[in-house]
């Protein structure tokens, strides 16, 4: 879907922001660009929709060099969501979501239908929220509208620049889950920039760790945790926390002992192993009963099962 090859970009006299970077993003992938501030992750993202023009190298989108596409036309084919939402304060929620469809000259009825569809998708009641202004929304609701606006014209690609960076942990977790659900539902290609390793591990089907404008390591979350390429990666993915984060990648269901029984309050098979560990420690037990999504007994989880066999 997106082919970045040997791209470089330098701002002013400082070193290169992006240095000879190549990256292939396949259709339907959820790629997370992660790194510290100034690692070039945002610049890379902004080069994909030509908000930043590379000094060298080329980027292809659906097989076409993006320099052949008018920037405005290119951007309308890619959803764009940013940290501070960038909602237009003088427009209602509906008008904000309708931005790109209107630029694409959709019919009024089609736009109205799309607004309601997206508000419903993001769990905002259309009748209650359509006519509100951004300042009448909470931070989480604003970001939901921001995501809805990015999805409005059904773009092939979703570009997100630290979309959940300014939210409190609870709201952030909810929206991360929403985004995963939407990604699974729509199969859209998502490129997301973050500096939060937990967010990257939770969301990404592939994580691209950047430093000084170059890719240090890329791969599935588990690859980065299990086989960090060097001490930088090792430090970045959390050194002492690696074990905990590995547990966060798996669900209770994967280590379940079917049919077995245990005493006490049951936990859900959908919980992560990290949450299960927390339950073991908090309740001071080494065996927990597990129920499935419908609440039926599914088996038991032993403390030892947390270790991979």
């Amino acid at each position: 879907m997106i082919d970045i090859s040997q791209v470089s970009k330098t701002f002013g006299s400082a070193g290169p922001a992006v240095d000879d970077l190549s990256l292939h993003i396949a259709t339907g992938e959820f790629v997370v660009l992660i790194g510290a501030s100034g690692s070039g992750k945002s610049t890379t993202l902004r080069m994909i929709n030509r908000l930043v023009e590379p000094d060298r190298g080329s980027i292809r989108f659906a097989g076409v060099d993006i320099r052949q596409i008018k920037p405005e036309a290119l951007r309308r084919r890619m959803g764009y969501a940013i940290q501070s939402t960038g909602l237009f304060p003088h427009w209602t929620v509906a008008q904000n979501i309708a931005t790109v469809p209107q630029l694409l000259k959709w019919s009024k009825a089609r736009v109205a239908d799309r607004i309601d569809e997206l508000l419903t998708l993001l769990h905002l009641d259309p009748d209650a929220f359509r006519g509100r202004y951004p300042h009448q929304l909470s931070g989480g609701q604003q970001q939901r509208v921001g995501v809805a606006r990015a999805l409005a014209a059904d773009p092939d690609v979703l570009l997100m620049d630290e979309p959940f960076g300014a939210l409190d942990p609870v709201t952030r977790a909810t929206l991360q889950a929403e985004l995963l659900r939407i990604h699974a539902l729509s199969g859209k290609t998502v490129v997301l920039v973050t500096h939060d390793i937990d967010e990257a591990l939770q969301l990404g089907s592939r994580i691209v760790l950047m430093n000084h404008g170059r890719i240090v390591q890329q791969g599935r979350p588990i690859d980065l945790l299990r086989h960090p390429a060097n001490t930088f990666v090792h430090d970045f993915v959390g050194r002492t926390e690696i074990g905990i984060r590995l547990l966060a990648l798996d669900r209770v269901a994967s280590r379940l002992r079917p049919g077995e029984r245990a005493a006490g309050e049951p936990i859900s098979a959908e919980l992560s192993l990290r949450e299960a560990l927390s339950a073991f420690v908090a309740r001071r037990v080494d065996r927990l009963p597990v129920v499935d999504e419908q609440g039926r007994p599914a088996g038991a989880l032993c403390f030892d099962d947390l270790l991979e066999r």
């Binding site: 036309a73 951007r75 309308r76 909602l87 790109v100």
Partner: peptide, 27 residues
């Protein structure tokens, strides 16, 4: 005018003229 609003307008594919008339001037 919030810089984020202008960045979002650009990122969504508004032309400089549309950004001026629809976002910057009203705000």
């Amino acid at each position: 005018v919030p810089a984020a609003a202008v960045d979002a307008a650009r990122g969504m594919g508004m032309s400089p003229r549309q950004i001026l008339w629809r976002v910057e001037l009203p705000l």
